[in-house]
């Protein structure tokens, strides 16, 4: 399987968003992404996989295969699910060290920076922390 680098996927997303000229289109894209995200198996909806600090419930499951991380995520709120879906799109299939190092500047570029504020209740910041922490644990275990 071919693995695109993080920066390339980020660029693709930024490019897609550049066609949207209003917030409705951006949010509809995110909502669609949320709907399209593969449903996380209930067995993975554990407390350990739950992202802390979100108003809606968010779960992130991490698997490690052939030196690469695979993320799966779910949320009971669709916009949150779309946002976590964006992260999955960028970070799943990457090497742990690349996930840990990822700056994820695309979030700002697509105009979703407001969701990065630590005071926002959807906790995009916490999702990123959760994913990086997972990545870090696979780095140190190797």
């Amino acid at each position: 399987m071919e693995h695109k680098p993080i920066s390339e996927i980020e660029d693709e997303i930024v490019n897609e968003f550049s066609f949207f000229d209003n917030w409705e289109d951006k949010y509809e894209y995110i909502i669609e992404l949320g709907k399209a995200l593969t449903k996380l198996d209930d067995a993975y909806k554990t407390d350990a996989n739950k992202v802390a600090g979100c108003v809606s419930q968010v779960w992130l499951h991490t698997a490690f295969k052939d030196g690469r991380l695979e993320f799966e995520a779910d949320s009971d709120a669709i916009i949150t699910k779309g946002l976590v879906g964006l992260l999955v799109k960028v970070l799943s299939g990457q090497k742990p060290e690349d996930v840990v190092a990822a700056k994820l500047e695309f979030i700002d570029k697509i105009g979703m920076k407001e969701h990065l504020s630590p005071t926002r209740s959807n906790g995009l910041v916490n999702m990123i922390k959760h994913m990086k922490r997972s990545a870090n644990s696979y780095m140190s275990s190797n």
């Binding site: 949010y27 709120a77 949150t80 959807n122």
Partner: peptide, 13 residues
């Protein structure tokens, strides 16, 4: 069928 957080986010926009 809609989470309150989603409704609130759209209203905020």
């Amino acid at each position: 069928g809609i989470h309150p957080y989603d409704t609130g986010t759209i209203l905020d926009k």
